[in-house]
Design a protein around this nucleic acid. Structure first.
Lengths: 106, 106
DNA sequence: GAGAAAATTCAGTTGACACTTACGTAAGCA
DNA sequence: TGCTTACGTAAGTGTCAACTGAATTTTCTC
C-alpha cells in the first residue's frame, strides 16, 4: 500500500497509468508520450508501477505490453476510505493520549 | 493535489493525520507519539501537511493546535475516483495513440 | 549466425527529502 | 524582568529517487 501511494505521488507515473488504463500498450508507445524524458526513465517508472502492483506486464515478441491493474487502485481508494476513520490502532492512540493528558493534569 | 498525495506517501505523516483526525491536538502531544524521531522532525511534517491543506493550525497561547482537514482527504478520494476514468485529456491521449498506430501500419 | 529492434539494466550525477542539532521567538509566569 | 514552555526555523548530513547515456539482453529477420 505504501508502495502504491509512493508510486502515485509522481505525476509522470500517474500519466503513464492513465495511458494504460483502458488498453494495454507497448513500452515504446508509452515512452513516446513523454518527450521531456528518455525511454530509459519511462522504463524505470514502469518498473516502479509494476513493483507497486499498479500495472502488469505481458511479453509479446520483443515488445512488453503494459496494462493498468485497476483492482489495485480500487484497493487504494478503499484504503483512503478506511485508514483514518477506523482501526483498533487509532482507537488505541486516542486512548493513550487521553491517559497521558490525564496524567499531566494530576 | 500533488502536494496532498506526496504528503500521504510518507507513513509518519499518515500517522500524524490519524492522530488529529477526530480531535485537535497540540504539537507536543503529537510529537510525543513518535519516540523514534525528534520534535523538530514532527514539526516539519506538520508543516508539510499544512502546506498540503491536510491539516489546519490554530494558536492558543504558546500552543499550536492541529486538526485534520477532512474535506481535503475527501477531495483526494474523489480525485482517485475520477482521474483515470474520465477527462478530456485521457481521451485525447487515446485518440493520439490510435492515430500513431494507424500511421505505423501504413 | 549477423544485425536490427524493443526494452531493460547498469553506472554515475543531481536534487529532494527526512532527519538532527542548534538557535530564535512568542506567550505565560515567578 | 528574567525564566520556562511550546513551538518554528536554519543549517548541515545521509539517503533515496529521478534522470541520462552507455551497455546488455531478448527476440525477430535475413
Amino acid at each position: 500500500m505504501d508502495a502504491a501511494l509512493k508510486a502515485l505521488a509522481e505525476p509522470r507515473r500517474r500519466e503513464i497509468l492513465r495511458l494504460v488504463w483502458s488498453q494495454e500498450r507497448p513500452a515504446t508507445d508509452i515512452a513516446d508520450h513523454f518527450s521531456e524524458v528518455t525511454r530509459s526513465a519511462i522504463s524505470q517508472h514502469l518498473g516502479v508501477l509494476k513493483d507497486a502492483g499498479l500495472v502488469t506486464e505481458r511479453r509479446d515478441g520483443t515488445r512488453r505490453l503494459y496494462r493498468a491493474q485497476r483492482a489495485e487502485i480500487k484497493k487504494l481508494r478503499k484504503f483512503l476510505d478506511d485508514y483514518w476513520t477506523s482501526g483498533l490502532e487509532r482507537l488505541r492512540d486516542v486512548a493513550e493520549s487521553a491517559q497521558r493528558d490525564k496524567e499531566k493534569r494530576q
